[in-house]
Amino acid sequence: MIYSRGRKVFVAVAGAAVTIVALLCIFPFWMVVAGSLTPENEIYVHGYSLWPQSVSTEAYKLAFEDPGKIIRSYLVTVGVTGAGTAVSLFIVSMCGYVLQRPDFKSRNFLTMFVFFTVLFNGGLVPWYILMTNYLHLKDNYLALILPMMVNVFYLIIMKNFMRSIPGALIESAKIDGAGEFYIFLRIVLPLAKPALASIGMFIALNYWNDWRNGMLFMQDETMYPLQYYLYRLLSSLDFLKSAAASTIDLGDQVFPSESFKLAMTVVATGPIILLYPFVQKYFVKGITIGAVKG
């Protein structure tokens, strides 16, 4: 194809603009990695910079000398994310399937019943009191799982997706004598795989990145989810110091709090970033499935 001059100029400008935006998006990631590898005394003199003059792994050594605590909160987050995503995906897809079945007469009423909670809710305080005073979920892992178990928007997306499954398939399975639950497990779920993968990714990401419920409900430090653990590290120097290896003798050296903070940020974020290239396509697909409604 022959491009006109105007087109060439336009493509060059567009390419440059997109490149700049993309660089802006990864720039802070680079800054944090660079900062975590900068020797503490260089940070004190020169501050964080794009390109440290020398490299030191001291902060990482400190982080990995006694990694029990961060591994602990990793386990909490992995467990909560795994259990939460699995249960959430299961009950949401099951309900979404039922709510679009044409022969299920209550579908409109129940959809409205669920959807109303998007329009109106009691606010944070009554919900908080329910969680703590009535269900007694303080310092209970359920307090990290339950709050994000049902997302009405994902339910609606799931319901819309299930509509694309031909009703004749379900009818014929019924004639063959299959029960409703069996049909859902064996016929509907396999056909809904693309939606399950994408929505599952979104649910998992919400669980993974949650810190608010940790802050609201967790007082026991050993039960902190990863993001809340990181938040405490960043916001409290005492907490930061207590997280570092107690076994290391720093002598009269200052505690390398600045590089250590960033090293912990890298340790807490690194694995998910490494996973990212493999899951990105599910997110893109998910956005397109949900289109505007997501």
Binding site: L205, W208, N209, D210, L234, T265
Partner: peptide, 11 residues
């Protein structure tokens, strides 16, 4: 550009 979507506001 998608990278920032993945991380929490804590990060």
């Amino acid at each position: 550009m998608f990278l920032p979507t993945f991380i929490s506001w804590v990060v």
